[in-house]
Design a protein around this nucleic acid. Structure first.
Lengths: 211, 211
DNA sequence: GAAGAAGCGGAGATATTCACTCCGGTTAAC
DNA sequence: GTTAACCGGAGTGAATATCTCCGCTTCTTC
């Protein structure tokens, strides 16, 4: 495979990942190609139809999720810290938000997808279970709770706001969530601490610029 | 105004609210009319174009938000409980998720919208400030943090799952968030506590049914 | 309970958007 | 320098969405 072809493929997957997370699985494919910086024909060359693209996106996302979950387990002795590290990494990957969007549309029984789902879920379940065993995660907070809160936090917020600010806020809200799970006072939140005035000013400015 | 006309108007606003929260401001207007149980002509009779409908939805949402915020302040002596009551009520109204979606598209300078925004934000800011003053809300958790976490929790999760379960989970996650804010152990979470198997089983079933 | 005003529904013409293909030109690899 | 792989984007046809028109129905009032 030629080097530029591989680069284009990766850019397509990244663009599709971000756009599907934001707008759902029905995004215009032209838009995906444009965001990826390639022509529409290049998209169709790699992925014969929308389903193939979505399959590619979700397989990539599940695989990346599995990798960071397993790495987090290896690199941290403390079970809660391992879980926290996984959640932070997954957020950076911008991967979690896309998975449920695509599952809405894809065939879940399809073996390759089912296997990836299983592997990924198993790896993150191990983190949750370990934190439970160590008594660091409240017993009534389940696998689904953690996973879904990650989705909620990873989903790009709607509203007029620069993308990087949205992401900074997502990081901050993940820390807030972790602090809540941890129980104690927790550490600093970091990131933008916006009061009402600052928030209003910010959105107004963006609104004006894009109008 | 005739009684049936008023009822239809309310159903249109409710349908538009839910659908915009779920799919964004670009929803097909036919779909809105159908969900409201009225003909498409009835929609256009009330709202000459999409912008008018979105304006109606957001004004309604902001007004309802203001009302529950003010009522929460009145009915609760404890500042944190007042904030919690507001968040719970706002979640039930299914109103929070729609506001940022629409702000993305509407003219924020328009006086009526700006006034409603101001009034609504002021009322919820009062709740946050009071909880800060009483030392029940960590000082570094801002107005924007609380508001955005509400949006994150109120937004319907994507993925194959019955709507009422999604809503039960949203309630549960709000309680989880409140427990985190409160700091202590907090009360019971309530609602569906799903482990990995149950979650997988559930989505698989829905997936099969809708296929 | 009859008259009439207000309101309703949905078929269909029109506009818009989207998916997908084709081919002349470009670029990486050796 | 050659060649095979790869690329871009205009363009066509299909699908989808918007919005109007008008015959029918339902409330309200006296």
């Amino acid at each position: 495979m030629r080097a530029d072809a591989r680069r284009n493929l990766e850019q397509l997957l990244a663009a599709a990942r971000d756009l599907v997370a934001e707008k759902g699985p029905g995004v215009a494919l032209d838009e995906v190609a444009q965001r990826a910086g390639v022509g529409i024909a290049t998209l169709y060359r790699r992925f014969p139809d929308r389903t193939a693209l979505l399959r590619g996106v979700v397989l990539d996302a599940l695989e990346r999720t599995r990798v960071v979950a397993e790495r987090a387990a290896e690199e941290h002795d403390d079970a809660f810290e391992a879980l926290a590290a996984y959640l932070r990494d997954a957020l950076e990957l911008r991967v979690s938000a896309v998975i449920p969007q695509v599952l809405d549309v894809l065939d879940l029984e399809e073996p390759e997808v089912a296997a990836a789902r299983e592997a990924s879920a198993r790896a993150t379940e191990a983190l949750v279970d370990a934190a439970h065993r160590d008594g660091q995660l409240p017993a009534d907070v389940t696998f689904a709770d953690v996973g879904m809160m990650l989705v909620r936090i990873a989903r790009p917020l709607p509203g007029p706001m620069p993308d990087d600010l949205k992401h900074d806020l997502a990081r901050r809200h993940l820390e807030l969530f972790l602090r809540g799970l941890r129980g104690g006072d927790g550490g600093r939140l970091g990131g933008p601490a916006l009061d009402r005035r600052e928030l209003a000013e910010l959105t107004r400015e963006v609104d004006r610029r894009t109008r």
